[in-house]
Design a protein around this nucleic acid. Structure first.
Lengths: 210, 210
DNA sequence: ATTGACAATGAACGATCGTTCGTTTCTATA
DNA sequence: TATAGAAACGAACGATCGTTCATTGTCAAT
């Protein structure tokens, strides 16, 4: 009784990706077996190998797909244009980061926590994409700093610190929590700007560092 | 040929803890076998069970010991006193957090990434300690906000965001990097205060939000 | 000198791991 | 209607997993 009527191979692969993402996020790559993924997919373990060469390839594919989608989605945002005013660009970046990550918590979790589970070639592939994301933010901060709008003597450090802050939300945010996601988002956008001395709330009489 | 001359059991246990911490940090709890830990300890796998009941107990002990040491060390700092001026207290907290974590990167990595590898009772034990650490910072922010020194409409959110930022440093900081640890520390302390509109650098004419 | 706890050993347990294999069933195309 | 290939199956592979066991050597106390 192989191949149920109407079931397409692509659908099975998609279900397997979803199952793997969820399980990897909850228990970690090494702690999840191909049999568990297969069970959640509704298929035998051997069937997974019709769609993924190895468990390692499955993990890599999940990470690469997530990061490529992240980059493509941001690049399609109007505020990603290099002529956007730096404060508006940074606010938009922070907001986008928070929303995109909130909508794909499992993928974020896996992509940031399972880097160590990748073998060397796959690690470098994923690391290049991560670095590209960091560079997007660093470029904005650098522009703002050069324009005298941000106090960021070390744009690279500021980038890593702020991405850490924004990504960390995924570790504790719960949809059923006390505050709605919109409030958490607003607070973080504000803190992001404030950290660089560029808060847009309050009066502008308080200029950034001279 | 058991028990070499001069070797004490406590030393083996300590070596095993160090080995486990290093291996767990590099590859993750589930990906490391008791045999690997034993090999790095210089002992057979079975000998580990003279010191730790199970692999799970070993992980739990590492986390609990780390978090208890963290709390005790901070509480011994003079700036931890509740009467410390909030801005000075927050700066001291950030600096302490960075230094303590920089000195024990493996323990931090394991304690933050392997929560999901704990079974329920152990998870609650560790989570209570983590929460205690967050509460230390939240208390400072709350005091500063009530005194009108910090702009923090939601002290709990600010706490989680800033702890995320500070802890995230462990993910990318490398001792051989471009900047010395002291510079990274100073930049982060400054961003921490700035994020709450309480930068101590520059003039104080720029007051926090009214 | 004898004893008992401690700390180590190598061997072994059943379970589970990622992966492969041969086979079967279904779908799409010719 | 015949056929090739995709996609599933159950079974099995060797390896490795956490853990247990009986045993042995060593030290401190009697």
């Amino acid at each position: 009784m192989a191949r149920q009527a109407g079931s397409q191979g692509a659908e099975t692969a998609a279900r397997a990706r979803r199952a793997a993402l969820s399980l990897f996020a909850r228990h970690g790559y090494a702690a999840v077996s191909m049999r568990e993924i297969a069970a959640e997919t509704g298929v035998g373990a051997a069937a997974l190998y019709n769609h993924f060469a190895t468990k390692q390839d499955l993990l890599t594919e999940l990470m690469v797909k997530h990061l490529e989608a992240l980059l493509a989605a941001w690049d399609a945002e109007p505020e990603a244009a290099p002529e956007t005013e730096p404060r508006a660009a940074l606010a938009a970046f922070a907001r986008f980061h928070l929303r995109f990550h909130a909508a794909r918590r499992d993928a974020v979790f896996v992509s940031t926590m399972e880097l160590r589970s990748l073998d060397q070639p796959n690690f470098h592939r994923v690391e290049r994409l991560r670095r590209a994301w960091e560079d997007r933010m660093e470029a904005i901060i650098r522009r703002g700093a050069e324009a005298g709008l941000f106090h960021a003597p070390e744009p690279r450090i500021a980038t890593m610190a702020l991405i850490g802050m924004l990504t960390g939300v995924t570790n504790w945010y719960r949809p059923a929590g006390r505050l709605p996601a919109s409030a958490i988002e607003a607070l973080h956008v504000e803190m992001t700007l404030s950290a660089l001395g560029a808060a847009m709330t309050g009066d502008d009489a308080c200029s950034p560092h001279p």
